[in-house]
C-alpha cells in the first residue's frame, strides 16, 4: 500500500473532523475519496501530506509516517488543491524555474510539453491567472518530475466543463508508469472513467472502500412493476436504499445486487411481480443514494 491510515482522528476543539479513519490505497491505483462537503476528505489529504498533524492514530505515505515526511518523499509527490496558495507576484515561468531545482527528477522536456498542453502563458503573473488557470498551473507544477504519488484535492471545484475536460485529459495523458492517484472530489462524473478504487467518507468516518468494479457490480437501480397497486412494506431489506413507490411501480437501489437472488428477494417482500428491471448506475447516482441514506440514517 502506498498510503495507509490506522484509526486516524483529527479534532478541532470539540469537533471531530476525522473519526478513526482506516484507509488503504494500493500502489498504482486511481483512488477516489468521495463524500459530501465536510466529510473529511481535505482533512484526510492534508494529514497525509503532513500539512496538519493528526490528533490520534497514524498514517503512512510511501512507507513513511506522515508526520515525518521529508523532502525526499515530497520530491516524489505531486499535489494539486483547489485552494493552493502560490506566490502571486511571480510569473508562471518564474515559479516553475524556482521549483525546478528542488526536484532531482524534474524533466524539462515534459515540463515544456505540459505547459504547451495546458496553454499556460509563462510570462503571466500567478495572481492574474483565473481560478481554472491556477489549477492548471498547480497541475503543471505537480507533473514534470513524474511523481510516484499524485494527490488531487477537489481539483475540479469551480472549473467550467471545458477546463475540467482539459484538466482530466492532461492528467490522464501524464498518468501511468505506476503513478498512484489519490483524488478527492464530489464531481463524480469526472471520476467515473478514472477511478479504480473508491472510498466513501461521511462526517469523518469511512463508510466503505472498494474497487470501482466491485462497487458498480454490487449496486443496481431496480424497478419492479407489481401486479396490483401496493403499499410500502413495513420491513425492507437493509441493502435496499432510496425506496420509492409510485402506483404499482417500486424503485430502489440494491446495494448487494445478485442477479440470481433478486427475484426471490422481491417476491419475499412484495409477493408476485409483473416485471423486474435492474440497471447499473453511475458513480454520481451511487454517491447521491449513499449520501441520502446516511443522512436519513443519522436523522433517524
Amino acid at each position: 500500500m502506498i498510503i495507509q491510515t490506522e484509526s486516524l482522528w483529527k479534532k478541532y476543539g470539540r469537533f471531530d473532523a476525522l473519526q478513526g479513519l482506516s484507509l488503504a490505497v494500493p500502489e498504482g491505483s486511481a483512488f477516489a475519496l468521495i463524500g459530501a462537503n465536510g466529510a473529511g476528505k481535505s482533512t484526510t489529504i492534508k494529514t497525509l501530506m503532513n500539512i496538519i498533524v493528526p490528533s490520534q492514530g497514524s498514517a503512512t505515505v510511501m512507507g513513511v509516517d506522515s508526520r515525518k515526511i521529508s523532502p525526499r518523499e515530497l520530491a516524489q509527490i505531486g499535489y494539486v488543491s483547489e485552494n493552493q496558495e502560490m506566490p502571486g507576484r511571480l510569473s508562471v515561468g518564474e515559479y516553475i524555474a524556482y521549483l525546478r531545482p528542488f526536484y532531482p527528477a524534474w524533466d524539462r522536456q515534459l515540463e515544456a510539453e505540459i505547459l504547451a498542453q495546458l496553454r499556460l502563458p509563462p510570462e503571466r503573473k500567478i495572481k492574474n491567472l483565473s481560478h481554472g488557470m491556477r489549477l492548471k498551473m498547480a497541475l503543471a507544477c505537480a507533473l514534470p518530475f513524474r511523481p510516484k504519488l499524485l494527490v488531487l484535492d477537489e481539483p475540479f471545484s469551480g472549473l467550467d466543463p471545458l477546463v475540467r475536460d482539459e484538466f482530466m485529459e492532461n492528467l490522464l495523458r501524464q498518468a501511468g508508469d505506476g503513478m498512484t492517484i489519490l483524488i478527492s472530489s464530489h464531481e463524480l462524473m469526472e471520476l467515473e472513467g478514472v477511478a479504480t478504487h473508491v472510498a466513501f467518507l461521511d462526517r469523518g468516518r469511512l463508510l466503505f472502500q472498494e474497487t470501482m468494479e466491485a462497487l458498480t457490480g454490487r449496486l443496481r437501480e431496480v424497478h419492479v412493476t407489481l401486479d396490483r397497486g401496493g403499499h410500502v412494506p413495513l420491513q425492507l431489506p437493509v441493502e435496499w436504499l432510496d425506496f420509492r413507490l409510485s402506483g404499482n411501480v417500486a424503485s430502489f437501489v440494491d446495494t448487494a445486487y445478485s442477479e440470481d437472488r433478486l427475484a426471490a428477494k422481491i417476491t419475499a417482500v412484495f409477493g408476485a411481480a409483473r416485471d423486474i428491471g435492474a440497471q447499473p448506475i453511475g458513480l454520481r447516482s451511487i454517491f447521491k443514494t449513499l449520501a441520502r441514506a446516511t443522512r436519513v440514517g443519522s436523522d433517524a
Binding site: M49, I51, P71, R72, E85, L99, F102
Partner: peptide, 14 residues
C-alpha cells in the same frame, strides 16, 4: 507563511 494549511511550499521538497 508558516501558519495555515494552504501554502504551496508546504508540499514542496524544501
Amino acid at each position: 507563511t508558516l501558519p495555515g494549511d494552504r501554502q504551496d511550499w508546504l508540499v514542496r521538497p524544501i
